[in-house]
Simulated assay, not measured.
Amino acid sequence: MKKLLFPLAIVLFFGFTKNPGTQLDPKDKEWIMKHLTESREHMKQVLDGLSDEQLDYKPDPTSWSIAENVEHLALTEKMFIESVHKSVADGPNPSLKDSLVFQDDQIMPMVADRSQKVKTSEPFEPSGQYGSTEEALAALLAIRQELMEYVETTEDDLRNRYAQLPFGTVDAAQLIVFIAGHMERHVLQMEEVIEDEDFPQM
């Protein structure tokens, strides 16, 4: 009987326990979801009640309007989520762990910092691809919802998946917070438009 019980115990142990380090840590998940949620809600708050005239207003010919910022976010967020899925599909690469260029708490402030201006590449320049701001916003919110649902349900070890950004290596958890920071950066840009002295009043 003992001979039968020992292999059964082995099966039960390995059948009902998960290998350590193969899932996203709950604290990491909470950290990611906090920034994804807060950046989305900040954007919705800024956009709430704006007229077409206000959405299309530009402080000067070289600036983006609020509507153009929304379109840019829709275009880039789609690309970013593809990068997340690619990093997962590429599989774990522990050798890159020492190549990370930022601590977690540096990601949001660094990306959202409006004192450093960065010109986007041509594919992500707003050009009216969505037809209207409402359509661009709907697409953006759908993409963000997809990403948030992925984070909530994934069993992928995002700390052991990596992506290369222009400034260096990030893990997939940091990449997702980078996405949140990128949205926050452009929401701050929208607020700068609203604060312009010639911004149309209701």
Results as ranks from 00 to 15, higher is better:
residue 37 T to R: 14
residue 53 E to F: 03
residue 16 F to P: 08
residue 72 H to I: 00
residue 189 Q to Y: 02
residue 24 L to F: 08
residue 35 H to C: 03
residue 44 K to V: 04
residue 48 D to V: 03
residue 96 L to T: 02
residue 22 T to H: 07
residue 122 E to C: 00
residue 89 A to Q: 13
residue 20 P to H: 07
residue 48 D to A: 15
residue 36 L to R: 12
residue 125 E to C: 00
residue 87 S to M: 13
residue 101 V to N: 11
residue 188 L to Y: 01
residue 121 S to N: 12
residue 192 E to V: 00
residue 181 G to C: 11
residue 188 L to S: 01
residue 136 A to Q: 02
residue 54 Q to G: 12
residue 20 P to N: 04
residue 188 L to F: 05
residue 173 A to I: 04
residue 110 M to H: 04
residue 118 V to Y: 11
residue 109 P to K: 09
residue 15 G to H: 15
residue 84 V to C: 05
residue 185 R to I: 00
residue 9 A to C: 04
residue 56 D to I: 00
residue 139 A to S: 06
residue 90 D to R: 07
residue 104 D to T: 06
residue 195 E to H: 02
residue 127 S to R: 11
residue 112 A to Y: 07
residue 26 P to N: 06
residue 16 F to I: 13
residue 55 L to M: 14
residue 200 P to I: 02
residue 10 I to G: 07
residue 102 F to W: 15
residue 139 A to Q: 04
residue 72 H to W: 00
residue 153 T to M: 14
residue 89 A to P: 06
residue 53 E to V: 03
residue 80 F to L: 10
residue 135 E to A: 09
residue 198 D to V: 00
residue 120 T to K: 01
residue 194 I to M: 15
residue 93 N to G: 08
residue 54 Q to D: 14
residue 128 G to P: 13
residue 73 L to R: 03
residue 173 A to K: 13
residue 170 V to F: 14
residue 85 H to M: 13
residue 128 G to V: 10
residue 109 P to R: 12
residue 9 A to P: 03
residue 86 K to C: 10
residue 201 Q to T: 08
residue 17 T to K: 04
residue 20 P to K: 07
residue 189 Q to I: 01
residue 35 H to G: 01
residue 106 Q to E: 14
residue 121 S to M: 12
residue 202 M to P: 10
residue 11 V to E: 14
residue 139 A to E: 08
residue 159 R to N: 15
residue 52 D to C: 10
residue 137 L to P: 10
residue 110 M to D: 07
residue 40 R to F: 02
residue 181 G to K: 11
residue 59 P to F: 00
residue 119 K to G: 06
residue 106 Q to D: 13
residue 196 D to Y: 01
residue 137 L to C: 14
residue 43 M to Y: 01
residue 10 I to D: 11
residue 149 E to Q: 14
residue 50 L to R: 02
residue 43 M to W: 03
residue 95 S to T: 08
residue 19 N to Q: 14
residue 98 D to P: 15
residue 42 H to F: 12
residue 21 G to Y: 15
residue 127 S to L: 04
residue 115 S to G: 05
residue 21 G to H: 15
residue 80 F to W: 08
residue 127 S to E: 03
residue 190 M to S: 12
residue 45 Q to G: 06
residue 183 M to E: 09
residue 133 T to D: 06
residue 121 S to R: 15
residue 29 K to C: 07
residue 149 E to D: 15
residue 198 D to F: 01
residue 127 S to W: 00
residue 40 R to K: 11
residue 174 Q to C: 09
residue 22 T to P: 07
residue 163 A to E: 14
residue 23 Q to F: 00
residue 56 D to S: 07
residue 120 T to P: 02
residue 130 Y to I: 05
residue 62 T to Y: 01
residue 184 E to P: 01
residue 27 K to W: 05
residue 144 R to S: 05
residue 134 E to A: 05
residue 153 T to I: 11
residue 163 A to K: 13
residue 73 L to K: 00
residue 143 I to L: 05
residue 201 Q to I: 03
residue 25 D to V: 06
residue 131 G to A: 02
residue 158 L to K: 08
residue 126 P to Q: 05
residue 193 V to L: 04
residue 146 E to M: 05
residue 96 L to V: 02
residue 126 P to N: 02
residue 3 K to D: 09
residue 162 Y to P: 06
residue 57 Y to Q: 01
residue 135 E to L: 08
residue 197 E to Y: 03
residue 25 D to K: 11
residue 116 Q to N: 12
residue 41 E to C: 08
residue 108 M to F: 07
residue 77 E to L: 11
